[in-house]
Simulated scan of single mutants.
Amino acid sequence: MPTVTVQQGPRDVELKRELVKQITDAFVDAYKIPAEAVTVWIHETPADSWGAAGKLTADK
């Protein structure tokens, strides 16, 4: 049973629905498993709680 974790900043619920669908479809196609076997976790972190290249994402 594959479990996929996506770490990202906040996104609209419609975008997350599409992401979960496409990730699930990729595993169904690649592994020939039922969609029910795939779990996708989305962990959202506010832009003021992470950074890259020495700067908070909120400051970009």
Rank of each mutant, 00 (worst) to 15 (best):
L56G: 00
K60F: 12
E36C: 07
A26Q: 04
P34V: 06
P2A: 11
L19Y: 03
E44K: 05
S49C: 12
T24F: 09
Q8F: 10
K60H: 10
P10Y: 04
I42Y: 03
A47H: 11
T39S: 08
D25P: 03
D25R: 14
F27A: 06
P34E: 10
G54Q: 02
L19C: 09
E36V: 10
S49T: 05
K55W: 01
K60N: 12
D12S: 12
A47I: 10
L56H: 09
L15Q: 15
V28D: 04
Q8M: 14
T24N: 02
A52R: 12
A53W: 06
A58W: 08
P46C: 02
E36A: 14
R17P: 05
M1K: 08
G54M: 03
A47G: 03
W50R: 03
Q8I: 10
K16L: 04
P10A: 05
A37M: 09
V13L: 15
V28P: 10
P2C: 04
I42N: 00
L15V: 11
L15A: 15
T57K: 09
A30P: 07
P10V: 07
Y31R: 13
G9Q: 11
D59H: 04
R11M: 14
D25N: 14
Q22F: 02
W41L: 14
A47N: 10
D29L: 12
S49Q: 15
K16P: 00
I42W: 05
A53L: 08
A35S: 14
P46I: 02
K55L: 06
E44P: 00
I23D: 00
